[in-house]
Design a protein around this nucleic acid. Structure first.
Lengths: 110, 110
DNA sequence: GCAGCATATACCGATGATCGGTATATGAGA
DNA sequence: TCTCATATACCGATCATCGGTATATGCTGC
């Protein structure tokens, strides 16, 4: 799972949201670092729906504009939980190696 | 940065290694979940060298087989440190949302 | 003796997620 | 009236990764 996909699932873990709101949520979540392109977002939404990780929640018309809400499925929740654990494990391994490295090399790298 | 790239940098954070050893290291690190293909590994090595994140360390001939060692550069170390922090931050955000979600929905998802 | 496996580097085409751009439409603000 | 924010959707391009193959050697089991 790549970063944008992970972030979409994280956004929906907070409750149902429509596409554009997901983009805004992710932008806020990452401190503005990640702003998903429309193409990336809607492609990811379609793909995740096909895979059963998310599903349509409801549709609203706000100011004559369609809003299609999506929500995380139980499968999606499990998937996000597993992915989160993986991220944390890898971060821990990398941090341990970096820490040992700094002790051994004393900050003198090439 | 994608997972295989991150894992290659993590492997080299532990000290210089040659290509094949990196594959083995990553396999061990991930409990056998990730076994990089030769194509992925050597392409990543070339790319990371071009980007200045790793560099050639030395070459050895062991049993008439070439071993080309690579090591992390200072730039690579900074890059891995930043990436690790990013992973940890995202894992924390996702976990918080999942935790709140479980309280709110009480385990009843679609 | 030879087949198969592990070691080791390297190249190739295919896949697929993401990027960047565009299209469409409306309401709000300058 | 022009631009910006909202909102969904499609398109081609890029590029990391995957899966397979090529090449070569040494070790192990039959």
């Amino acid at each position: 799972m790549r970063e944008p996909t992970f972030l979409v699932l994280t956004a929906l873990a907070g409750g149902p949201q429509h596409g554009y709101a997901v983009i805004e949520d992710i932008a806020g979540m990452t401190g503005g670092r990640v702003r998903l392109r429309a193409g990336t977002l809607y492609a990811a939404l379609d793909r995740l729906r096909t895979e059963g990780l998310i599903e349509a929640d409801r549709e609203e018309i706000v100011q004559s504009r369609l809003r299609r809400y999506y929500r995380l499925t139980a499968t999606g929740e499990r998937s996000l939980t597993a992915e989160t654990a993986r991220l944390r494990t890898q971060a821990t391994i990398a941090e341990r190696r970096l820490r040992i490295r700094r002790i051994e090399l004393g900050g003198a790298t090439s």
